[in-house]
Amino acid sequence: MTFILGLTGSIGMGKSATAAIFRACGVPVHDADATVHRLYAGPAVGAVEATFPGVTVDGAIDRARLGEQVIGNAEAMKRLEAIVHPLVRAAEETFLAEAQQKNAPLVVLDIPLLYETGGEKRCHAVAVVSAPAAVQRKRVLVRPGMSEERFAAILARQMPDVEKRARAHFVIDTGAGFGFARRQVDDIIRALAFTA
């Protein structure tokens, strides 16, 4: 049986870098965000453009334009999720089926809004990536196009970090650097009785 570890964390906590550590350890990772990027470059373009006119640039969804229409607008976000989530879920199911066929002992589902969307029910355990709030804020506000208002709107959609940590089976602290995070990932893989 393939063990499914959910990986999540609020914006700026270091989740993508932590997913890369799992990959470097030989663990297959399904990246929900990367899947959305692929969908926005092809399969989801027609439906998203029809729902949010003017968000397509050069045949692909422009995330900044889309963000202007959906961030901070709960109703718009629900309409977008109704289009995108089933497509992401289908890609995830294909990934899991392939992992089972290859007898992969462990896979990671990298899902930003894991708890918010009930994704933990599809996992055997969950690891939450976390860092001190000051570190998170510094990381996020240096991103291109990020503002205090946008950061606040994104955080408002996410379960508070303290609650995610309380619900997690594992917490990976990235606030002390990624060497420390790597040791924690190694520990998790060992705890699940797999070797990197």
Results as ranks from 00 to 15, higher is better:
residue 158 Q to M: 01
residue 183 R to K: 15
residue 84 V to L: 04
residue 120 E to F: 12
residue 94 T to Q: 15
residue 154 I to L: 02
residue 171 V to H: 07
residue 142 V to L: 05
residue 112 P to I: 05
residue 164 K to C: 02
residue 191 A to R: 15
residue 179 G to T: 15
residue 91 A to C: 05
residue 73 N to I: 03
residue 70 V to W: 02
residue 156 A to F: 01
residue 151 F to E: 02
residue 166 A to N: 05
residue 104 A to G: 13
residue 142 V to I: 13
residue 67 G to L: 00
residue 107 V to W: 06
residue 174 T to E: 05
residue 111 I to C: 03
residue 69 Q to E: 04
residue 124 H to F: 13
residue 159 M to N: 01
residue 117 T to C: 13
residue 167 R to L: 11
residue 193 A to I: 05
residue 179 G to L: 12
residue 62 D to S: 01
residue 134 A to R: 12
residue 154 I to G: 00
residue 72 G to F: 04
residue 110 D to K: 11
residue 89 R to I: 04
residue 158 Q to C: 02
residue 157 R to A: 09
residue 96 L to D: 04
residue 120 E to P: 10
residue 151 F to T: 05
residue 157 R to N: 03
residue 187 D to M: 14
residue 90 A to R: 13
residue 86 P to M: 08
residue 105 P to S: 14
residue 182 R to P: 11
residue 157 R to D: 00
residue 174 T to C: 06
residue 170 F to G: 07
residue 109 L to R: 07
residue 95 F to E: 10
residue 134 A to K: 11
residue 81 E to I: 03
residue 152 A to D: 01
residue 116 E to C: 06
residue 176 A to E: 13
residue 184 Q to G: 10
residue 180 F to M: 10
residue 129 V to T: 07
residue 150 R to I: 01
residue 105 P to K: 13
residue 141 L to N: 02
residue 162 V to T: 07
residue 64 A to Y: 00
residue 183 R to E: 15
residue 149 E to K: 01
residue 134 A to S: 14
residue 97 A to D: 10
residue 122 R to Y: 05
residue 89 R to Q: 12
residue 91 A to D: 04
residue 175 G to S: 04
residue 143 R to F: 04
residue 110 D to P: 06
residue 105 P to E: 13
residue 94 T to H: 14
residue 194 F to R: 15
residue 123 C to K: 06
residue 147 S to Y: 02
residue 91 A to E: 06
residue 193 A to Y: 11
residue 111 I to A: 05
residue 170 F to S: 03
residue 86 P to E: 12
residue 62 D to V: 00
residue 150 R to D: 00
residue 167 R to Q: 09
residue 62 D to L: 00
residue 83 I to E: 05
residue 81 E to Q: 12
residue 118 G to T: 05
residue 180 F to S: 13
residue 128 V to I: 06
residue 64 A to E: 02
residue 148 E to C: 01
residue 74 A to R: 14
residue 131 A to W: 07
residue 86 P to N: 03
residue 70 V to H: 00
residue 137 R to W: 08
residue 100 Q to S: 15
residue 131 A to L: 10
residue 115 Y to T: 11
residue 80 L to E: 09
residue 159 M to G: 00
residue 94 T to V: 15
residue 192 L to K: 08
residue 141 L to I: 07
residue 93 E to G: 09
residue 175 G to F: 10
residue 106 L to H: 11
residue 163 E to G: 04
residue 100 Q to W: 15
